[in-house]
């Protein structure tokens, strides 16, 4: 089997821990998360509300606000996938400003809230462009028009104010805005949650086309796993601040190995293919201040084993598709035993 050499790593997140508050009362919203983003790939991050996915993204982009605080870990950006890395957590505000938008752009969930209500749409593009490029006002405005055109917004809208646009237009405008300086990485925090399903589809298709055109990598955060299957190359499922499963989109969709991923998959109707019976996940997201012992999902897990309450499963490293689940470990163990038996 010939394996494609994976694209070089752009963003390397290692053992990142983010806490709200400090000292005894600190709540750990992200707990030792490690992942890599490769050049040009779409990495999906799935999880229900409170799973720490948004906190993780604000920390990775260093946009977290107090009381959120990066307690430990590393975030390294490799420009162009090169060997040399920039430690984002050690960068000064001025160094970060230079990287922002030029290399690392973001799209927020609510486009209405993300656009300055008293500035013309175009001016918000011009601001970003002129902060990084030495171009004249006129040039920057026409660049803004080009960008709007890329996402299918009529160019005369460049002089509109955000409240004069429809919800879908606003959301597409924030995506166009993220493309302004042709960044290598775009972090999108639920960019399609606030729009209807039709607009959601349009945005997803447009995103994939733009990615083909410009080759940026996307970290796409959502709670909608079936959407990620359409869009993402790899998917990372989060629960209670930890990654519980990481693998290729198709593998996670066809064969989710963590019971939580299975539950998440079965709670959304698929965008394509035959309808499945929809099932929710019983119970509610855990209280991060008082996590259950062992596996955080164990009280809600339909396949719970006795030792789940005492042993916290770790995500296996260096595998294509792995889940942080004891069931999985015994399954892996079985495969290993088998292969050992065969080789003997």
């Amino acid at each position: 089997m010939i394996k494609e050499t994976p694209s070089p790593v752009l963003l390397d997140v290692g053992e990142l821990t983010v806490e709200y508050g400090s000292g005894e009362d600190a709540v750990r919203a992200v707990d030792g998360v490690s992942f890599q983003l490769r050049r040009g790939e779409i990495l999906g991050v799935a999880g229900e509300s409170g799973s720490g996915k948004s906190t993780l993204m604000t920390a990775v982009t260093r946009l977290q606000r107090p009381p959120a605080r990066i307690a430990s870990g590393s975030v390294t950006y490799h420009p162009g996938g090169s060997g040399s890395g920039i430690d984002l957590l050690a960068s000064t505000p001025a160094e970060l400003r230079e990287l922002r938008w030029e290399s690392l752009a973001v799209v927020f969930q609510s486009a209405m809230a993300a656009l300055n209500p008293v500035m013309r749409l175009g001016a918000q593009f011009v601001d970003a462009i002129r902060a990084h490029r030495r171009v004249g006002r006129k040039e920057a405005w026409s660049r803004a028009e080009e960008l709007l055109d890329l996402v299918g917004i009529p160019t005369n809208r460049v002089r509109s104010y955000p409240h004069e646009l429809s919800g879908g237009m606003r959301q597409r405008a924030t995506i166009a805005l993220a493309l302004a300086c042709e960044p290598e990485i775009i972090v999108m925090d639920e960019p399609t949650t606030a729009v209807d399903v039709v607009m959601q589809r349009q945005i997803v298709h447009r995103l994939m086309r733009l990615r083909r055109q410009f080759g940026f990598a996307i970290v796409f955060v959502t709670h909608d796993l079936s959407l990620l299957v359409e869009l993402a190359d790899r998917i990372m499922v989060m629960y209670a601040g930890r990654i519980v499963e990481l693998g290729s989109a198709s593998a996670i969709y066809r064969d989710p190995r963590h019971p939580y991923s299975q539950g998440l998959r079965d709670s959304f109707p698929p965008l394509h293919g035959p309808l499945r019976e929809l099932r929710g996940i019983p119970g509610s997201p855990p209280d991060l201040r008082a996590l259950p012992t062992g596996c955080a999902f164990q009280p809600r897990c339909p396949k719970r084993l006795p030792e789940c309450a005492s042993t916290r499963p770790e995500l296996p490293l260096l595998v294509e598709h792995g889940a942080a689940c004891l069931l999985q470990r015994s399954a892996d163990q079985a495969t290993v035993d088998e292969s050992e038996a065969v080789s003997r």
């Binding site: 606000r65 990287l99 922002r100 973001v106 927020f108 601001d127 990084h132």
Partner: peptide, 14 residues
């Protein structure tokens, strides 16, 4: 605390 202020910072503005 508004998103547009956060986004302005994310844009790398002074």
């Amino acid at each position: 605390n508004e998103d547009y202020v956060l986004l302005a910072q994310a844009k790398g503005l002074a």
